[in-house]
Design a protein around this nucleic acid. Structure first.
Length: 592
RNA sequence: GGUCUCUUAGCUCAGCUGGAUAGAGCAACGGUUUUCUAAACCGUAGGUCGAAGGUUCGAGUCCUUCAGGGACUACCA
């Protein structure tokens, strides 16, 4: 890349002018600020001691050297300690001509890098998905796609949390009050039906606690003695003992939930290469606990519970196995971690899990290190921030959630209303329109959620609808549709031009430079595991293109060279928008 | 109490390993369509980057302290 050429030349210049030895890759150059002319800037302040000259004089000397020795540099300009270099127009034009017809421009050779496992979604099977899960799913899907684009072999998996006390709660409520209600008999989507009983359980449980408290019991005791929680716990014991009736209900209700999830996953456009079920893996960790005991890393307390002391690592003493021998979260996660690396022979295992579990993953990794597991360094918690509502966190049991299915429907509806109001798609078939509404609605939703840095918490206000204008998915989709319209009208897709016969306007050059940087943007997004990097990039590209489209004629341009150059810009811009959005899991329409 | 984290325009957010006069979108106000899709384009206004110190040629960015949010610190997951 041109940056590497310049860095190499600067390293040479620094050595021959001032005897400074520096490796080319350690030379830092940056994009020239918009307020100055030039493409790249080298800041000379750090080298003044060696040059023993003023900032301007140093920059001037370096600029002259580079201008003489680097054929790609067209001119340079010095502003105090800043050396601004302009690259020859020909360089950008050659890049355009040689790249515009490459459909997967910017993507690395598939499977050219080590295998990576990405776990995401990982839902509980006692309630439907909500907005927080949507963020998780979109993030996991997108990060997997980004890593693929950087050349990694990627395996996605979903660890389904299908057992435990929370599952028994909805089971118990259904057995008590359900009267045999099914998704078919109620017309409810399976996950929503089960969620209804989860909420019902909580209401019942709370009213029991209230009553016990009125009879003089403390709230803490009441929480342990309420009859419904005792019943749920009994159900859990029965489940672990493989009681046929309990297991039967469990299987049936989980099946309802899975069918419901499948519908939502399909609408979200996410999928998994592999499913793990906690009911299958929860026993595995116990072997590792034994291993740790044998190695003297874990220790037993008098009540038979097993612990590890991580206070030297800045963490506390942590329980790894209950006194009654049943496993806790960390127990099964130790087992699953081992299983994952064994199943897929990968070096890295990424967990897309909320930041509320940071402590848990620190513990997990520390234990793996202490056990001497070779895979320990490969455990990576991709910790993302919670989605908050104006009133605070979402709570399933309290009903303060934004339901995933509802939100998706709302987005499709808004897309439909907006499209109809604009009237551009009149006469299109009902089937195409339906698909378009989905594409646009999901484009708005996905872009909205993915543009925020994953590490940061984000605010969602249900009162304010998600925008379709400005820095949004639909704007970028619209930009793509306009480009495709131009390309359809262009007829051919062979656009040859003579580099010497065209001129580049400011915005045309900006687009070219931006397109040129696409591979670097993918690399950065992969390094940071941040789809937001792609969002920022593709928005700027779309904005540049829109300005270009507004300011310049394309098909009506009389200079054939100029026209074809612009058509190449169209072609590559459309491809990069499409590719960028594919990394976000968003489709782009041909018309809208 | 301890650990971690956040605070940038009225609102939602960018700001790459420290670099030039801190940027978008929305909302507000004004303008642009006989011409390739106006879900667009152009302009105006809006800021003590939570506060105070420090590090240095240079700090929104790094360090310390403080204020205010949030998360975690369960024989829950």
């Amino acid at each position: 890349m041109i940056q590497d050429i310049i860095k190499g030349q600067i390293a040479t210049a620094l050595y021959s002018l001032y005897q400074i030895t520096i490796a080319p890759e350690n030379v830092v150059i940056e994009k020239t600020s918009d307020d100055y002319s030039g493409d790249f800037t080298f800041v000379v302040f750090p080298y003044l001691k060696a040059s023993r000259k003023s900032p301007a004089a140093t920059a001037q000397e370096l600029g002259a050297f580079l201008n003489d020795n680097c054929s790609e540099i067209d001119s340079y300009e010095v502003v105090t300690g800043f050396l601004n270099m302009s690259i020859k127009q020909e360089y950008w034009l050659n890049f355009l001509s040689s790249s515009y017809s490459i459909s997967n421009y910017g993507f690395a050779e598939p499977n050219s890098k080590e295998a990576v496992l990405v776990e995401y979604s990982s839902p509980n099977t006692n309630k439907p998905l909500h907005l927080g899960h949507i963020r998780n799913n979109l993030l996991g899907y997108s990060v997997a796609e980004i890593l693929k684009a950087t050349g990694h072999k990627v395996i996605t998996c979903n660890l389904v949390n299908d057992r435990g006390i929370h599952i028994c709660k909805s089971m118990y409520a259904w057995m008590q009050f359900g009267n045999g209600e099914t998704p078919e008999s109620s017309g409810l989507k399976g996950d929503h039906l089960v969620g209804k009983y989860y909420v019902l359980f909580d209401q019942k449980y709370k009213s029991e606690i209230k009553e016990l408290c009125l009879n003089g019991m403390t709230e803490e005791d009441a929480g342990k003695k309420a009859s419904s929680i005792l019943a749920a716990q009994e159900l859990l014991v029965k489940w672990e003992a493989n009681d046929p009736e309990t297991v039967g209900v469990w299987k049936m209700m989980n099946e309802w939930v899975y069918r419901g999830f499948d519908v939502t996953y399909k609408k979200l456009g996410v999928n998994f290469n592999h499913y793990y079920y906690e009911s299958n893996t929860y026993l595995l960790g116990k072997e590792i606990v034994q291993e740790g005991l044998d190695a003297g890393i874990f220790y037993k307390k008098d009540d038979n519970s097993v612990w590890i002391d991580l206070s030297e690592e800045g963490l506390d003493q942590k329980l790894v196995l209950r006194g009654d021998g049943t496993s806790v979260y960390i127990t099964q996660d130790l087992g699953t971690a081992e299983l994952k690396f064994a199943d897929f022979n990968c070096n890295r295992s990424i967990y897309v899990v909320g930041n509320e579990q940071e402590y848990h993953f620190k513990v997990l990794q520390q234990i793996a290190i202490k056990l001497g597991k070779s895979y320990a360094p490969g455990i990576f918690h991709l910790s993302y921030g919670m989605v908050e509502l104006p009133h605070g966190k979402m709570k399933s049991r309290e009903g303060t959630v934004v339901d995933a299915d509802d939100l998706i429907s709302e987005m499709e509806l808004t897309a439909e209303e907006t499209t109809k109001a604009l009237g551009k798609m009149d006469g299109e078939s009902e089937e195409n329109l339906k698909k378009l509404y989905h594409t646009i609605g999901m484009g708005a939703l996905k872009y909205y959620l993915l543009k925020v840095d994953p590490k940061k918490k984000m605010m969602f206000n249900p009162e304010e609808s998600i925008d379709f204008q400005g820095n949004t998915g639909p704007f970028i989709q619209y930009t793509h549709a306009r480009i495709k319209s131009v390309l359809r009208n262009a007829g051919s897709n062979e656009f040859r031009f003579e580099p010497n016969e065209v001129s580049l306007s400011k915005v045309e050059k900006e687009i070219l430079v931006k397109l040129y940087h696409f591979p670097l943007v993918i690399a950065e997004a992969g390094r940071e595991m941040s789809p937001g990097v792609i969002c920022n990039y593709v928005f700027e590209l779309a904005k540049n293109y829109s300005q270009f489209y507004h300011d310049h004629q394309i098909l009506k341009e009389v200079n054939l060279n100029q026209k074809n150059m612009r058509l190449q810009i169209c072609e590559l811009s459309a491809a990069v928008i499409r590719s960028s959005f594919s990394l976000l899991g968003i489709e782009v329409p041909e018309k809208m």
